[in-house]
Amino acid sequence: MTDPFAYYRRSPLQRGLDSQGANWAALADEVAYAERFAGDDALPAIAIADLSPLPRLGFKGRGTIAAMQTRGIVLDATPNRCFPQPDGSLCLVLAPSEVLLLSPLDGSGERLEQLNASWNIDDGERTYPLPRRDSHAWLAVAGTATPEMFAKLCAIDMRLHKFPNLSIAQTSVARMNAILTRVDLGATPVFHLLVDSAAAQYFCDCIVDAADEFGGGFVGLGAFQKLADG
């Protein structure tokens, strides 16, 4: 079994996941992730996956939308809208001047590395990259009861007919500032959550506590990827 302490990069939730019996594996760029838990064979009604080890990157500045379009990212300037990309990654337009890019679930980060490397301050594009892999923890919550669970944590109506697929809400969840977006996998509603990594363990405890009522709990990234594969 992989020892997460053998890697420089670990999830901010590593200790909490360890205490719940996570089995660890590593991505190609030497980041430890929770690959599976003991109960993964029967997915819980609300499945929570820690995607924090996966690559992500932000860009901010008045020229951000144009700079992203120049680089082949599919998006427009509609704030609070998520744009799935052909390679499986997600582009979250948080404001007309800010985007957040999330890698595909397989953890491939080459595209984001290229985007980061392609930026040069001397080009005067009026955009600049933000290291979101360090600032934010990333969780995915899947299951039909998820909107009911969010009703306990958040004032925004997350019911599926009120919060359509690919919507984004930037709001307070469990009293923490959070970015929340819905990106369904097939017929399964899936909500991605990004919160301050420094308080990720507190947030994780709140989510697990809220999901417990519905029989929810953590699943490994492997089980979540299978959900994505149908």
Partner: peptide
């Protein structure tokens, strides 16, 4: 609960402001 309308994000709990 008091609601304020953020011109970008819509109606939110006043505690978010």
């Amino acid at each position: 609960m008091k609601i304020m309308i953020c011109p970008v994000n819509g109606p939110r709990n006043i505690a978010e402001f």
